[in-house]
Amino acid sequence: MDPIYGGLAPDEALEIEKLARLLYEVRSARDEVLARLGAADDAQALACIVAGDIPEHPGYEDYLSARILAGLTGQIRAELATRLEEAQSR
């Protein structure tokens, strides 16, 4: 176990580590989708689709995927912050 989890109970540390790994994987997946589109973020991807620089199909589906992954990233971050706060308050 990474020393960063040293002050936590083993079960808490495992759960937090799992959330951190999931956060990394979801962010990486979003980065891959955006790279396929050649866009820095989902707003740029949508602008390129609207301008016709990116084909509508599968561009729009990739754009939606990027948006969903961004939302999921936010949810995981919030859960991770809550878990860390709870663990540190004990």
Rank of each mutant, 00 (worst) to 15 (best):
M1I: 02
D2N: 05
I4F: 03
I4V: 02
Y5E: 04
Y5C: 02
G6M: 00
G6I: 00
L8T: 00
A9C: 04
A9D: 11
P10E: 10
D11M: 03
D11W: 02
E12M: 02
A13T: 00
A13S: 01
L14V: 03
L14I: 03
E15H: 04
I16A: 01
I16F: 00
I16D: 01
I16N: 01
E17L: 02
E17R: 05
E17S: 06
K18N: 05
K18F: 05
K18Y: 03
K18D: 08
L19T: 00
L19I: 00
L19W: 00
A20L: 07
A20T: 13
A20R: 11
L22C: 03
L22P: 02
L22G: 01
L23A: 10
L23M: 12
L23K: 12
Y24T: 03
Y24L: 03
Y24E: 07
E25N: 10
V26I: 08
R27C: 01
S28P: 00
S28N: 08
S28A: 08
R30A: 05
R30N: 07
R30D: 05
R30Y: 05
D31R: 06
D31F: 01
D31C: 01
E32I: 08
V33P: 05
V33Q: 06
L34V: 10
A35R: 15
R36D: 14
R36K: 15
R36G: 09
R36A: 09
L37G: 11
L37T: 11
L37A: 10
L37F: 11
G38M: 12
G38P: 13
A39H: 13
A39K: 13
A40I: 10
D41C: 11
D41M: 11
D42A: 15
Q44A: 09
Q44W: 00
A45F: 15
A45E: 15
L46A: 14
L46H: 15
A47C: 09
A47S: 15
C48N: 15
I49H: 06
I49C: 09
V50S: 05
V50Y: 07
A51Q: 13
A51I: 08
A51H: 10
A51W: 12
G52V: 09
D53H: 09
D53K: 09
I54W: 12
P55N: 14
P55L: 14
P55C: 11
E56R: 15
E56L: 14
H57N: 07
G59E: 08
G59P: 07
Y60D: 11
Y60I: 08
E61K: 11
E61Y: 10
Y63L: 06
Y63G: 03
L64Q: 15
R67I: 13
R67K: 15
I68F: 04
L69R: 14
A70S: 13
A70D: 13
G71F: 04
T73D: 10
G74E: 12
Q75C: 05
Q75N: 07
I76P: 07
R77D: 13
R77V: 10
A78S: 14
A78P: 05
E79V: 02
E79Y: 02
E79Q: 06
E79T: 06
L80F: 07
A81H: 06
A81E: 12
A81P: 01
A81G: 04
T82H: 12
R83T: 00
R83H: 01
E85Q: 04
E86N: 12
E86Y: 07
Q88N: 02
Q88T: 03
Q88W: 02
S89W: 07
S89A: 12
R90A: 08
